[in-house]
């Protein structure tokens, strides 16, 4: 075991080790080379791997995705960066129509990773705060992951690179350098399998199903509920958003019979609705209370702190919702 690392450092390590292990892995994106990326995630990579494997591009997200697809077809392993996940919208066509459908159409698998910083709560305003998962949830053929710990971040980036299909890799920018979540990582090579959720806290009275930065809100709410209400809350960190880990979702519901789904994107059309539907269809008899969804309000992400704080789900709301379920 080495020293404790941040989530950002963990992703760096994973990328670095994969580039060492496999010569076909390369990085492509805006300002990823000498500058090292807007968040400095790829700083130093160009010195080690050279400009042929760390490619600075024009401001052309559609081309970045398209080029990654083409290169992947020819046996390379592109890791494409969006400077902010908000700009994934400019690559939407390529992702949903090309990358997602290629294997199905018999045109070859696209083994590529599309990663970038997502998430709100950093006063980024409407165009630097996106959580993009539900735009892609309704597109078959794209995997999606979002880690909440350094351990998972490193294991998932490695798994994503080794995965035979396209993976969208969301990195919550609020977690990048958050001291609270720093962890020591194993020395040896490991992956965290795509498609597997993780129990972040065990409990028997109520489940919070969540992912990304909201895992911390869930854990904080669980702490309060234990102290003030004597409730034992289970927190399930999904880690993979597509394909969802249905068995893990159903297991926790069957264990606690009460469930909150918490995510940072707006509630309407969010991934919470899909999870709620799975639970309603497959674990209805196990429920002792309605399924509650908590997310941001149905607006763009506002800039001013007072507005963004209202917009975002809060620990207080999670606690309130849990109390309502507990007393149902």
């Amino acid at each position: 075991m080495g020293k404790e690392v941040t989530l950002l450092e963990a992703i760096r390590q994973g990328l670095w080790e994969e580039m060492k292990r496999d010569e076909s892995v390369f990085i492509i994106g805006e300002d990823v080379g000498i500058y090292g990326g807007a968040f400095k995630l790829t700083e130093g990579f160009i010195d080690e791997f050279g400009p042929e494997r760390v490619i600075d591009t024009p401001i052309s997200e559609a081309a970045i995705v398209g080029v990654a697809c083409g290169a992947a077809l020819m046996g390379m392993k592109p890791v494409a960066e969006f400077q902010f996940i908000d700009f994934i919208s400019c690559g939407f066509d390529m992702l949903t129509n090309y990358a997602a459908k290629s294997r199905y159409r018999g045109c070859g698998a696209i083994s590529a990773v599309f990663r970038g910083p997502c998430g709100s709560g950093v006063r980024g305003g409407p165009f630097h705060s996106l959580n993009a998962e539900s735009f892609f949830l309704n597109t078959a053929g794209l995997k999606m992951v979002e880690p909440s710990t350094p351990y998972d971040a490193k294991g998932l980036i490695k798994a994503a690179i080794r995965d035979p299909d396209p993976v969208l890799f969301f990195e919550h920018k609020k977690l990048y350098r958050l001291p609270r979540i720093k962890q020591e990582l194993p020395e040896e090579d490991y992956i965290v399998p795509i498609g597997k959720a993780r129990i972040a806290r065990e409990g028997k009275d109520l489940s919070i199903i969540t992912f990304g930065a909201q895992v911390l809100n869930a854990l904080d709410a669980a702490e309060i509920l234990e102290k003030e209400d004597g409730l034992q809350v289970e927190v399930l960190d999904l880690r993979t958003l597509a394909p969802l880990d249905k068995p893990a979702i159903l297991d926790t519901v069957k264990k606690t019979n009460r469930v909150i789904i918490l995510h940072e994107a707006s509630v309407t059309g969010g991934i919470g609705g899909e999870i709620a539907a799975i639970i309603a269809e497959e674990a209805f008899e196990w429920l002792d209370a309605p399924i509650l969804r908590i997310g941001s309000i149905d607006t763009p992400v506002p800039f001013a702190p007072q507005l963004e704080d209202y917009y975002l789900p809060s620990i207080g709301e999670v606690v309130e919702a849990a109390r309502r379920l507990a007393n149902y």
């Binding site: 007072q306 963004e308 209202y310």
Partner: peptide, 8 residues
Amino acid sequence: SPEPITAA
């Protein structure tokens, strides 16, 4: 500063 609720 804006009133929080005006976010809605």
